[in-house]
Amino acid sequence: MNIFRLTGDLSHLAAIIILLLKIWKTRSCAGISGKSQLLFALVFTTRYLDLFTSFISLYNTSMKLIYVACSYATVYLIYMKFKATYDGNHDTFRVEFLVVPVGGLSFLVNHDFSPLEILWTFSIYLESVAILPQLFMISKTGEAETITTHYLFFLGLYRALYLINWIWRYYFEGFFDLIAVVAGVVQTILYCDFFYLYVTKVLKGKKLSLPA
């Protein structure tokens, strides 16, 4: 465990909590893509099945349980409790265009052709693109609430910090996971445009709105 990995995990946790609190405090999930949140719940579910088969550390187990619980809570708030505030008309990204190719790819390119490993690979590939419905929604409405941008910032920062973690681990531990690294690079690149807007607009106190 290095500092980049730890801050990456904490940044991921911060993103998840920010989103939950935003929905809970405002009693509304306006501007949030339920589809992205469903995909994240699927990501955590398929990745953390190893909770049943292997124990790494108390930290590892508790973080996994927290991520899974929070992602299900978020989905519950969007599709059940605050369903009336869910902006389904703008959440029109076709998720099958992500899930089907990602599913196929995880069968073709993986470290080991075993059920758990294929599901882990699926979750890594899916996570890298799971934010697309959310970004698509923002590009469709042309704006995002500031709190939503903080959520996206921490979510993007998490994968960027993981990239530094992987460089660190490569040099100091000889650890290298091509699948995670390639997917992590793709995932981070998807946030670059958003990072630019976040720094040039949101951090200067302006609302994130896109030119018409």
């Binding site: 590892n60 996971d177 995670a180």
Partner: peptide
Amino acid sequence: IVAKTPHDEL
């Protein structure tokens, strides 16, 4: 070392 199950990252 190449990563494989069990994965130690989150």
